[in-house]
Design a protein around this nucleic acid. Sequence first.
DNA 1: ATTAATACATAAGTGAATTATGTATTAAGA
DNA 2: TCTTAATACATAATTCACTTATGTATTAAT
Lengths: 110, 110
Amino acid sequence: MHSPELLKGTLQTIVLKVLKDHGRMYGYEITQRVKELSDDRILLTEGALYPTLHKLEAEGMLRTETESIGKRVRKYYSLTPQGRSLVKERVSEFVDFIRTMGNVLQVELS
Amino acid sequence: MHSPELLKGTLQTIVLKVLKDHGRMYGYEITQRVKELSDDRILLTEGALYPTLHKLEAEGMLRTETESIGKRVRKYYSLTPQGRSLVKERVSEFVDFIRTMGNVLQVELS
DNA sequence: ATTAATACATAAGTGAATTATGTATTAAGA
DNA sequence: TCTTAATACATAATTCACTTATGTATTAAT
């Protein structure tokens, strides 16, 4: 894990982009996918993830379908058209931020 | 300005690295340098900067010399040897974070 | 003269996160 | 078979790095 401070403000971006790349996913699946993609460096906590999903849904960025797997319930999330726009915005915002930080810190990224 | 959320957790890194690259600087000068390097995208607020400088000084990462310019007082900060180690750590931590985010978001940084 | 820029400092408030807690099902291991 | 770990959701309490607001004072610009 990195200093978790750096992660602040990136949660929505991560969730949205992973949903865009992978399609329909449920909450727990998102945490696992991010853990995998980040090589165990980013571990999303439930206390942050679920409220974020609820918020994005309330804002019309995500829609949900509930599915029953045996007796267990899963809530699948997917992007709405609005959500699709938001991903682009958030990702390019992040890339721009990184570019700026590269200038300020005088480091080569990648 | 970017979404200021992304900036969270980067303040110490920015201050330390700018001090490393430019040497001895005073607070206001740091804000101006960062503003310049970031092409007006990162505007450090005093309410964040000064407490951070005080904290880093208290931890032995920075030392200060006070200088009088006319009737005005400037507090110059510079890195201690400990501070010099911390810069390296913070910057490589940041670079590592960016690399991870690149993987998660599937974007090319640079 | 008045305003903007320079230069410091600190207290109050915010908000996105962590931590803690709760419920429940399913799989694994002793 | 019993217990623990993993799966799967949810929300309340707390934290803490930041923003906003406020304060003092000097110097430059209009």
